[in-house]
Design a binder for these strands. Structure first.
Lengths: 200, 200
DNA sequence: AAAGTAAGTAAATGTTTATTTACTAATGAA
DNA sequence: TTCATTAGTAAATAAACATTTACTTACTTT
């Protein structure tokens, strides 16, 4: 049996992320992708059932998986509240600024019903993404360090400003002096942490 | 001269927003839109040069314009810091939860290069969106109430959690008990305000 | 009431789309 | 070395795409 050429598989996914970042999800076509990846359209359909299947797997397996791994690097749920949040912020900022194309698909994931549903489904079926962070919230709620809220509220309060700042990092990237720096990120992180703490 | 039928114009835009919210920007076609709006494809091209022109005008004129207006209702730049931020949060929350389809296109605007560029361009050409809020930041920086940052950083810290909460509002909307309520929003708003204030 | 004109339609345009068909190539197993 | 099998290709398919053509409709102006 002829073995799969893993380089081709990877080329397809890498080029897809690039095309989506450059031209938008709404302008990705399978033929364009095949051509750009130097592959026959049929080759894409060996591994993926159809376009939707391809996009969902690209999103979940190639983007969200590695993203979660990078974000949780050196993190553990028993950390001090401020330390834990800071680690996550720095991990996220570094990973996303180094992986612009991944970030672009994450942004599409918030807008596209297809990807959004796929995320929800994966979250339920294969265990929650960012489960260690959930335990981290639980511990800090129990310790009285933060107020009790539904989990998603913590994500909104603590992560969404960071993703917006990453977006601004790319908007400003071409400018002579860098504006969204790691120092700025850490200052913002401190403010978010300060807001979250329960009054004592 | 036969006059324009404004109902048709409006139907086109309303149905477009609905289709985009339900199926995603990537699945909107001009033919589908015309059919759903009970209109000939040609009718769309009377007012709009092409699909891109249509999408940009839909985004800027029909969504961002009314959104800004609603957000700034009863707001003025000379308000007390906490009062101003709270007004904006409540206005935003009410407007977006009442206008699900507008919110969907705003989300696409963050992901799609076409809409993103259109936003930047409109922001520069026709004066900044949310200009009164910029003056509000300036005043509060000058008064020492908040630290000085680039304007976009305030948006990330103060608005992006709210947009994420609106997203969660829609995710949870079907559930028996409402989770993302106006009370929760106000509690989150207070936390964000607390984090932003300079130490005294 | 007739003429002039832009709005609006239905059907057609040529292109691009997702996907498949019919085929060839390359490899591990025998 | 040959065979079986899957990887992979190029070209084809039918449907859907954005946009236009050729025409009709309805209203304002005269």
């Amino acid at each position: 049996m002829r073995p799969k050429n893993l380089e081709k598989e990877e080329a397809i996914r890498t080029i897809a992320l690039q095309l989506i970042a450059e031209e938008g999800l709404e302008n990705l076509s399978m033929q364009k992708l095949a051509k750009a990846a130097n592959v026959s359209p049929r080759t894409i359909y060996i591994k993926y059932e159809n376009k939707e299947d391809f996009l969902i797997k690209l999103f979940i397996d190639d983007v969200l998986g590695p993203y979660e791994k990078a974000v949780l690097d050196n993190f553990n749920p028993d950390m001090d509240f401020a330390d834990g949040v800071k680690i996550i912020w720095l991990n996220t900022f570094r990973y996303l600024t180094d992986n612009k194309h991944h970030f672009a698909l994450i942004q599409h994931g918030k807008a596209s019903p297809l990807l959004n549903k796929a995320y929800q489904k994966a979250n339920i079926q294969q265990g929650h993404f960012f489960a260690p962070v959930h335990r981290f919230w639980e511990r800090n709620v129990a310790a009285g360090i933060i107020r009790k809220f539904p989990f998603d509220v913590y994500r909104a309060l603590l992560f969404s400003p960071l993703l917006d700042l990453v977006n601004e990092y790319f908007d400003y990237q071409e400018r002579p002096q860098q504006i969204i720096t790691e120092d700025l990120i850490l200052a913002c992180c401190d403010m978010v942490i300060k807001g979250m703490r329960s009054e004592q």
